[in-house]
Nucleic acid binder design. Structure first.
Lengths: 369, 369
DNA sequence: TCCACTTAAGCAACGCTGTTGCCAAAGTGC
DNA sequence: GCACTTTGGCAACAGCGTTGCTTAAGTGGA
């Protein structure tokens, strides 16, 4: 069962402290982007003394991860030196294995894709075949930056899996993947560390970098309906990496039959409304589920995405927002919740897969849930 | 809005490290109870070296927080010395302000109530009157252990509030509390640090100490229906301390009217079934909501409590379990989820209020959500 | 009864962390 | 040109957990 907390050796010694503070500074440098950030601002944000920040940034500069980037205007004294991340110091590969295609990206420390490959993929083919294609994509992309280290490979897949050991489970319609140790198999083929996660979690991870701080849920409405949760700056995966099962929540007791065998699942209701052209009703249904989620977790934002939403973003945003605001007005929680659509890159899932690898570098361990 | 993450000075210096490790060891000592735990076990659990644990425990003993408690049987060498927490080294006061009564407890470090007072309370009286009663209860209880330090006062109240600044909001039916700065007002009267939280969160906090590790939700079914969430060992409160709004989730689109003004709220459905004597249906409805929650968060356990559940624990446990297991069998998530009833003390809310004060001592900061 | 062996726990020296006190560098503005 | 402000590095330091070693306190076989 969930052993993540029970076994967590939470004791902190000096190397762990050093690593934590360095990662924290790196995270702030990343957030500052090309604009950069000064040592004193870093000190203020971290709560460390300016001198400690100087030492930490000196080490980061020696490792080639940070660099000076000009001066701020003086405010009456010596102007502040601005520091910024060196995005191409290290890279990570992100793979998105979908039912019909493979997308692979090489991502730099700033989160930008510097190389992309896409290819058709038969997810129903034998696992070894799919794995060989994936490994080829990793090899090709790594060659794009031959002299820079590639930290690892992140893989996003549609189905249920265990994020901790990287083993797939019961991928709907693809029984050959049940119990397949994807992480270890790909790690052996590529010689790189591999991290595996659900596609919705990867998308949520990408969003967590561009979204303002605070908790949010990413609701993905495409051929199905799923969710990725970001709580406290980290993706919430739950005990068995099963969190975000949003589509089969009951929204209509004893309602119409869903293909999962249940009744009144939000996914069935929402997609049925969409299929008969009643987009307002689809948005209202989605909004009811979103409002349930907002009330339960008291998050700051709801972010919508997926092909079905993209077809009419405005209708969905307005519909969902209306339900949430109406419930907030009744005192059901969720006042001030913001509803938006996922902007960001055009390959958010593959980029999020790469972020699975980069997250530890910036202190977003993600081992908690 | 949610500034908890943006402003969090996450930098760690040596005093912070020392405090963290000491709190971690204290937490393990508390978990070990009267039985105690050896230095080497502490080292194994924390990931620190035995020598570091020796130094930390030496400091704790010097402060009177830990003490030796006999020897383990030898395994062929020097027997291990067992250490245990000194429960009566420090205390905390917990207050439960309910609609019609006040319960106050003095709790030791082990979480046991060493003194209790209950009194009728008119929550609709002027705030100053209620506050005076509360302050009196605190003073009386503090006198029970005159020579030991009382760390602070934790207060659990029914309504919506902000845990961070301790201000109440829109307590249903009691407009005079809207915007009342309960934390600061009581802190001034008692001269002690005060922490305020929702009653369901306090109950969940108590349970988190006796329950096995892992994430769980406490569902309280009494005159209303609410939830407390424990994720990653800490109570999840959300951006505005509004998390756990479980009763007014929509479970039946366009269903019967709820007193909140919405339609098809789980609370209305569940209580209506209970009112007409259909306990099986009430349990089924509760189970559907619980299954929604389980799927969304992938928690390890669901814990039921409250007067209505207590009236027929077996029916509710079986009913809720049945719905969750049926959905898990369909692939909707939640396999292996355990459904139980809240055991623990007879004053779980007041004791949980006291735990709000004790949590930081054991490194459960709770500032994250 | 003795002695070799095992295991636990403290002492001392150490490396490394962030902190403090101080000073040089690099601007502004009268 | 000089007084002032602000930034940021250097050096010394206190305190953390770690390492190497010693002492304490048991077991068990000869």
């Amino acid at each position: 069962m969930n052993t993540s907390r029970a076994k967590a050796p939470a004791g902190v010694n000096l190397p762990a402290l050093r690593h934590h503070n360095a990662a924290l500074v790196l995270d702030l440098l990343r957030a500052a982007g090309a604009e950069g950030i000064s040592r004193l601002e870093l000190a203020e944000r971290t709560g460390l003394t300016p001198q400690a920040v100087s030492k930490i940034t000196a080490r980061l500069r020696a490792e080639g991860l940070a660099v000076g980037a000009g001066l701020r205007p003086s405010t009456g004294g010596k102007p502040r030196t601005v520091l910024r991340l060196v995005p191409d110091a290290q890279f990570a590969v992100g793979l998105h294995l979908d039912r019909d295609g493979l997308t692979a990206v090489l991502v730099d420390l700033a989160g930008r894709s510097v190389a992309v490959t896409t290819a058709p993929l038969d997810f129903g083919a034998p696992a070894e075949k799919v794995l060989a294609d994936a490994a080829d994509a990793v090899r090709d992309l790594s060659a794009a930056e031959p002299h820079k280290p590639v930290l690892g490979v992140g893989v996003a897949v549609p189905g249920p899996l265990d994020h901790r050991d990287g083993v797939l489970h019961r991928v709907t319609g693809f029984p050959q993947w049940d119990g397949y140790p994807l992480r270890d198999a790909l790690a052996e083929r590529t010689g790189l560390p591999v991290t595996v996660d659900k596609d919705t979690n990867a998308a949520a991870l990408t969003l967590s970098l561009s979204e303002p701080p605070g908790d949010f849920a990413y609701l993905h409405l495409g051929t199905g309906l799923g969710a990725g949760l970001v709580l406290g700056g980290e993706v919430h995966r739950g005990a068995r990496t099963g969190a975000g099962e949003f589509g089969h929540q009951t929204l209509q007791l004893d309602g119409p039959l869903c293909e999962c065998g249940g009744r009144g699942c939000i996914e069935a209701l929402c997609l049925a409304a969409e299929a008969r052209g009643d987009r307002a009703e689809a948005a209202r249904v989605l909004g009811a589920g979103a409002a349930n989620l907002v009330g339960l977790l008291d998050i700051d934002r709801v972010v919508l995405g997926g092909r079905t939403v993209a077809a009419d973003e405005d209708a969905y945003v307005r519909g969902v927002r209306a339900v949430i605001e109406e419930r907030a007005a009744r005192g059901g929680g969720g006042g001030g919740v913001v509803v938006t659509v996922a902007g960001g890159g055009d390959r958010p899932v593959a980029e999020g897969a790469a972020q699975l690898v980069l997250a530890p570098v910036f202190g977003r361990v993600g081992e908690r849930g």
